[in-house]
Amino acid sequence: MTSSASSPNHIVVRDLTLAYGETVIQRDVRFEVPRGRIFVIMGGSGCGKSTLLRAMIGLLEPAGGEVLYDGTSFWGADPAERESMTRHFGISYQSGALWSSMTLAENVSLPLEEYTALDGDEIARIASLKLALMGLAGFEEYYPAEISGGMRKRAALARATALDPEILFFDEPSAGLDPISSERLDELILELRDSMGMTIVVVTHELASIFTIADDSILLDAQSKTMIARGKPSDLLEGSSDPRVVEFLSRGRKGGGAELGPRGDGTAEG
C-alpha cells in the first residue's frame, strides 16, 4: 500500500461538528492520529461516539469541519475518490453487522472478491486464516445467527481485517463480551498495531481496554456536546484537573479495581 511518509499524521480531524438534521450531537471535535497508533474515542453512552465514527468512515456528512487522511480531505473529495479512500479502511460496527444471509467464510471473502484478483481457492485460504487469527478456526460454514455474540464480534473483526486495511475502525469491540474474551480482543488489537503497523481507531467506554490499548484518546461529553479531554488516558487520570474526566476514568475502580491490578489506587470511596 502506498502512502506518503511526508505527513506525520495519518488522520486529522479538524473542528468537526456532527448533527442529525437540526440536532447537534458534538461540536469542535479535533484530534490527530499518527500512523501506527491506537486512538481511543471515549465517552458515556449516547454522547456521539458512533456518530463521530460514522462521519469518519463516510456514512454521515459532518455539519462542519473536516476529516483528512494523509493530508487529503475526505469529505472534500468527490465520491469516487472518497470510495477509493474507504477501500483502505477496515470497519467493525457496533452491532457486528455481519451479513446475515452469508456464512462467516463468505462474509470475510466478499471484500477479497470485490477488491483482489485472487481466485476462489486463495480467497478461501485467506478467509480461513483471518477467521483462525480471531480464534474462529472451523467456523467457516456457520451463519452469524448460529454463533455467540462474542464470536460475532470476532468474526466482524476478521472481516474488517480481510484486506489488510491501513486504518481499522472499531466501534465498541468489547461491549457485551466477558472479561476474558475482551482481554483477548485487546491483545489482538495491540498485535495488529505492532505486527501490521495499522492505525486503529477504537470507540469504547470499557476502562480496562482504554488503559491497555490507548496511545492517545479523547473524551466526549454529552452535556457540553464537545470533547472535554485529550491525551493518553493514564496521563489524563493523573494530570487532569477536570473532575468529569477524573470521574470517568476512575469509575468502576471501587468494585473492579482488583481486576485492574496495581492501578486500583486511592480513589475508592465508602
Binding site: I57, G58, T86, R87, W99, L110, P111, Y115
Partner: peptide, 8 residues
C-alpha cells in the same frame, strides 16, 4: 452500512 463502506 457495511456494504456501503465496502463500496458495494
Amino acid at each position: 452500512d457495511a456494504l456501503r463502506t465496502l463500496g458495494i
